[in-house]
Nucleic acid binder design. Structure first.
Lengths: 100, 100
DNA sequence: CAAATATATGCAAATATGTTGATGCGATAA
DNA sequence: TTATCGCATCAACATATTTGCATATATTTG
């Protein structure tokens, strides 16, 4: 539970995934997608109060970077977490954030 | 260990801290600063092979966002982690890494 | 004080990201 | 087939981040 390899590739990969998550809307999305739950774009955009285009855009970023996965079902596309562990990041960040 | 509040402020704060971390050089810095260890700007810039100005800039970002703390000692400034837990993020990310 | 060392900061060009409206497109319903 | 829903994507513009050079400041040394 300790050592981290510092190869440039790992740094790049880690940064890539972190950049994917580092946006309020995208953190919100991850927050909505607990466990096995899968939501449609419309459900997500309504809960987070963002435009359709914006939601779609952010979902794509999360999917491209391997954070989410999606499946199409009729007219809908359901998005869900690919790594439940990623939620830990948000938990972790929130627990670190609070003593200014 | 479970529920995450989704208030806009928390989302912003979480995103802010994540953005601070989401850069290869800055992840590298966190990687170097295990435990209590504190390093000078020069030590950090040499290990990560970045310019002086760049190292200084990145350190400032990490400090401003509450990731690092610093103490001055003579001509040197020693930087160290403010939240050991933040290292978990890097570990977590790496363990999630892509299996395309 | 002058010089050297360690770090910080201002600035500007290059690049990356975010935002929004319009439009395209597959799936279903009428 | 036409209309509509759900979503994706394009385009254009706005904002933010990164990088490096030049320069400034602080500390110690001679």
């Amino acid at each position: 539970m300790g050592e981290i390899e510092l190869t440039p590739e790992l740094l790049e990969r880690a940064a890539d995934m972190l950049r994917a998550v580092a946006h309020p809307v995208r953190i919100g999305i991850i927050g909505l997608l607990e466990g096995e739950r899968a939501l449609t774009v419309t459900e997500i955009q309504k809960q987070l109060k963002v435009g359709q285009s914006s939601a779609s855009h952010h979902l794509r970023i999360l999917k491209d970077r391997g954070v989410l996965q999606s499946r199409r079902e009729g007219k809908n596309t359901f998005y869900s977490l690919r790594h439940e562990r990623l939620r830990d990041i948000v938990t972790c960040i929130n627990s670190c954030g609070r003593e200014d």
